[in-house]
Design a protein around this nucleic acid. Structure first.
Lengths: 344, 344
DNA sequence: GACGTTTTTGGGAACGTTTGCACACTTTTT
DNA sequence: AAAAAGTGTGCAAACGTTCCCAAAAACGTC
């Protein structure tokens, strides 16, 4: 039970033209007379003709689709990035295929290769927290698949990248904690594999240094799975608390919410006594208790910029040799002291 | 700059066979001798042959892709449904294309027609809150496009549907409010167009009736745009408060969080005095202040069931005449009184 | 050894497009 | 008047598959 639509052949037959003429008329080529064009267009409209994108893809050897790899769509940051991607992609005639890694390297590789075999024209990817080996991406890239990285980017990969100003975001958040009187500031962060982890750590350290606070490695906890498992978070919190932090700077969306959750679950009595500042794009932060100061990334814009770069690569006629790394500014949203946040 | 891969033709030439033989060998047809099969398979493996899905789609007139239409992926309920969908789809060899309506009917129609022209094999859809006219879906369905509705379903459309037990979910939530002593229970809900709105209203009314509480229409507020605009929500809250509700039952994910937000923003002094019970699949409810009782839908499972039904339609050899409406149970998660929720 | 049967293989059309090339016709140029 | 240039159209190949139909090869059977 497949549904049939009219094809170029049908139109040609009905109008007594050749398929080439019809094809050209539909694509508004200069060779075709205005008269014929009108005729074809009118008839196509009448029978509600839709070009078969599959046939077109086969012929043109491109699919007008771009692949997206993120760890999770149920993540405020990534879903906002995706919205940004779509806003550009659809305008430019591309559709998007989204895949989730759930922070697993294996899944990431599987998904990318699946997408590649589905003949996507290009790939937008934020690496999973497990990922260390990206030779499979290099191979695809070498074979000609355009790739743009965003958010979690590899170091030595000559292509376009779009990231937030992670250093500054981390610096601002840490400084904010310091300025509100905190002195023992812990740092809960993602896997060390990730670029964002390294950059944000540096920002954290720089803020400490500026205020002459000693950096203590034992106050930094890494979560290899990016907080995908609550046990991982609870363990990290448990290891952190003996050092009696009065503030925590947290380095990613999922970790931030996960950490507050863990704190509330395992140590409700002190959950409100520790000031928290963290990266998150949740639009519900205002509801959270304990409340927190958040670093918001320009997620939507990041998606847009990445997509524009990718499409420029896809549609480039000549080899590209100059690559950009766009850095977008984050925004610090300070905690509001409302009824629910009296540090009771 | 397109990247070339080896094709069936290349293999045939290299091995001195015909393309048909190679094709059959790869698909493990009975006609081909074991010997030849081994030869072909080995060589295919060696050159890392990947069948071109576009060519295959063109020939077989199907794309092995299914379309998904939701209002927003940045919505806990929908992103969980999508995870459920993917878990089944990928296993069965389909990939998914996700589109968002942002609760706009126009966008919905546009997206569906775009997907249809992209030759998806089937469609999974939750209607937008604006949608009233679904003749465009009937047309596509009549032309042979398999469609399965989930969550927000039309009434008279003979196809498979998957929904939550909305009546019971609403009943339970309302009863919970009543049992905790509330008597003036408002109901904030979605557009009247939606099936979920009607079903949940009935559950709300039934709970009131059971406890002999009069149903007052002025305590029910509809949000035409499903809470996509904060102004809409603030207006609804503003109209509700003069009736001095001591409890509110809220009928959807976005509205629930939006309403608490609006309440906190416009009337922080009473935000903690009103008990709230609402549909939401947020996994962050435990962090919310004021806290709330939530009705959780089996979102992941809903996605799985819907996908199984859809694939069964796609792969059916004969016309289907019997359609099911699967109803999945919701779960009531009672508010916990923790430090942050002392109704201060 | 001639003839069926079965097994294995190949030829080629088809799916719906796009596009290089050739052709026919008109118009302009010399 | 012939040649050149311009205009509009059609033919046919190609993209990478699948699959119908025939052909060839291998094997029995009488």
């Amino acid at each position: 039970m497949r549904f049939e639509t009219s094809t170029i052949k049908d139109i040609a037959k009905a109008l007594g033209l050749s398929t080439s003429t019809v094809s050209r008329a539909l694509r508004d080529r200069y060779e075709i007379s205005e008269e014929t064009k009108k005729l074809v267009l009118a008839y196509a409209e009448k029978v509600n003709y839709r070009a078969n994108p599959i046939a077109r893809s086969l012929k043109e050897r491109r699919s007008y689709s771009i692949g997206i790899i993120v760890s999770e769509i149920a993540n405020n940051f990534f879903s906002q990035v995706i919205n940004g991607i779509e806003s550009i992609a659809y305008d430019r005639g591309y559709h998007v295929i989204i895949s989730q890694t759930h922070e697993s390297h294996k899944q990431e590789k599987l998904n990318v290769e699946h997408l590649a075999s589905r003949s996507i024209d290009g790939l937008l990817i934020a690496l999973s927290s497990e990922t260390q080996d990206i030779t499979y991406l290099r191979d695809l890239y070498a074979k000609g698949l355009p790739i743009v990285f965003f958010d979690r980017v590899p170091e030595d990969f000559a292509t376009h990248k779009v990231i937030a100003n992670n250093f500054k975001g981390a610096f601002d958040a840490t400084e904010h904690l310091i300025l509100s009187g905190k002195r023992t500031i812990a740092h809960l962060t993602n896997s060390e594999n990730l670029s964002i982890t390294r950059e944000r750590l540096k920002g954290y350290q720089a803020a400490l240094a500026k205020y002459h606070i000693e950096f203590k490695p034992e106050l930094v906890k890494y979560c290899q799975h990016g907080g995908m498992h609550s046990a991982e978070l609870e363990q990290a919190v448990k290891e952190l608390l003996p050092h009696k932090p009065d503030g925590i700077f947290i380095s990613s969306d999922r970790l931030t919410t996960g950490c507050i959750m863990a704190l509330k679950k395992t140590n409700p009595e002190i959950a409100h006594k520790i000031a928290i500042a963290g990266f998150t794009n949740s639009n519900l932060v205002e509801l959270f208790s304990p409340s927190l100061t958040s670093v918001k990334q320009p997620a939507f814009e990041m998606g847009q910029v990445a997509t524009e770069l990718l499409i420029s690569m896809i549609e480039a006629k000549r080899e590209i040799t100059e690559f950009e790394t766009k850095i977008l500014d984050t925004e610090l949203v300070r905690m509001q002291k409302t009824l629910g946040n009296r540090f009771l």
